[in-house]
């Protein structure tokens, strides 16, 4: 017998905020209902399968009081956010730094680089 469950999400694509019901069969998201447009389907399936977020945070700068702001170049799996934050806490960078400089390659084996979002001379 296949195991089926219904998960609930609020679509964030637009301010309507549809209440989505995603059917998950044997751990695989199979069906979305409650969506007013097709963007809701993709969002519902992603949220139920592998939700992703862009992580933005800070790293220490050697010899400076002000931290450096950074972000992941693209979204990373939501469940890895605490690990990503912990990894960034271990980093010290040395100026000069330009916007877009890679601060950490392949964070937590996600295949995603962390880049600087601020210039420090």
């Amino acid at each position: 017998m296949s195991k089926q469950e219904i998960r609930h999400y609020v679509c964030v694509n637009c301010p309507v905020g549809c209440d989505l019901e995603v059917t998950v069969t044997d751990g695989v998201a199979t069906q979305v209902s409650g969506n007013a447009c097709k963007r809701g389907i993709a969002y519902g399936l992603d949220e139920a399968t592998d939700p992703k977020r862009t992580v933005t945070s800070l790293v220490r700068v050697t010899g400076r009081e002000m931290p450096l702001s950074v972000r992941t170049e693209s979204p990373v799996p939501k469940k890895l956010i605490p690990e990503c934050i912990a990894a960034l806490r271990e980093i010290d960078v040395t100026p000069p730094i330009n916007i877009g400089d890679i601060i950490l390659e392949n964070i937590c084996n996600t295949g995603v680089n962390v880049i600087a979002t601020k210039e420090i001379n």
Partner: peptide, 22 residues
Amino acid sequence: CIHNGFGLQRYKEELSGPEYAH
């Protein structure tokens, strides 16, 4: 505003606040 979400209309990409300001 070091979080992302800036510039989708103006630059057609998602930037952080400092990047948009720059």
